[in-house]
C-alpha cells in the first residue's frame, strides 16, 4: 500500500495488500474507505457483507495484536483502526455513503452555494415551510392538517429514497459524473424534506 507498492519491512511487492504477502507485515493503510475495506466503489453495498468485512478487519487490525511488533506497525494499526471505524460508520449509511462518493469524485458537498440548488426546489420548500408555520400558529385544530403534512412529507421521502436507489444503480452500471450530479440534487432535496419532517414530528409529539 506504500507509494512504491513495496513492503516497508521486506521490500517485496505488496500487490496492494494490506498485509505483505511475503512477511505478513501490516502496510501503511490507505485513506480511501473502499480501498481499506477492499470493496469495489459501488453505491449499492450489501450491508451484511460490509459488516462482516468490518468485523473481520477490526480483529485483524486491532492495536492489541501489534504490541510486540515494530513501532511502524503499531502506528499503522492505530491509523488503520481509526480509518476503518470512520469507513464503516460512513459506508453503512446509504446517504453518508453517497455523500462520501460525491466528495471523492470532487463534488463540493459541504460548501454548496445556493446557485447549486434549483429555484423550483427553493420555492417548493419555502411554500411548505410557510404552510407548516401557519398550521403551527394555530391551536389544536391544526392537528389534522399537521398529520396530513406529515404523511405528505413521508411520501415525498419515500419517493426521494426510491430515486436515490435508482441513481445508485445507474452509477454502479456506469460510474460517471452525470448520475453523481443528479445524485447531489436528490440529496439536497432529501435534506430539505428531512428537515420539514423533523419539524412536523416535533410539533405532533409535544415534550420532546
Amino acid at each position: 500500500m506504500s507509494a512504491a507498492g513495496h513492503c516497508w519491512q521486506c521490500n517485496q511487492s505488496t500487490s496492494g495488500q494490506l498485509f505483505c504477502p511475503a512477511c505478513n507485515s501490516l502496510q501503511p493503510p490507505p485513506n480511501d474507505y473502499y480501498a481499506l475495506l477492499g470493496l469495489e466503489r459501488k453505491l449499492n453495498l450489501n450491508t451484511q457483507a460490509l459488516q462482516q468485512r468490518f468485523y473481520e478487519l477490526s480483529r485483524r487490525l486491532h492495536p492489541d495484536r501489534f504490541m510486540q511488533r515494530p513501532v511502524e506497525e503499531r502506528q499503522y494499526s492505530l491509523d488503520a483502526s481509526s480509518i476503518l471505524n470512520d469507513a464503516y460508520r460512513t459506508l453503512k449509511d446509504p446517504v453518508k455513503r453517497a455523500q462520501y462518493v460525491l466528495k471523492q469524485a470532487g463534488f463540493d458537498v459541504g460548501e454548496q452555494r445556493s446557485k447549486d440548488v434549483p429555484p423550483e426546489l427553493l420555492e417548493e420548500v419555502f411554500e411548505l415551510n410557510m404552510a407548516l408555520e401557519e398550521m403551527r400558529g394555530g391551536d389544536n385544530s391544526a392537528r389534522p392538517q399537521l398529520e396530513q403534512a406529515e404523511s405528505n412529507f413521508t411520501r415525498m421521502m419515500t419517493d426521494v429514497d426510491r430515486q436515490l436507489e435508482s441513481l445508485f444503480e445507474k452509477y454502479d452500471r456506469s460510474p460517471s459524473r452525470d448520475p453523481l450530479s443528479e445524485l447531489r440534487g436528490v440529496l439536497n432535496r432529501r435534506k430539505y424534506i428531512q428537515n420539514l419532517l423533523d419539524e412536523v414530528h416535533a410539533e405532533l409529539t409535544p415534550d420532546t
Binding site: Q112, V117, L122, K191, Y192, Q194, N195
Partner: peptide
Amino acid sequence: GMVGAPECGDVMK
C-alpha cells in the same frame, strides 16, 4: 431573492 443552503436545509427569501 430566494436562496438556500442545502447542507443545513435553510431557505431565505
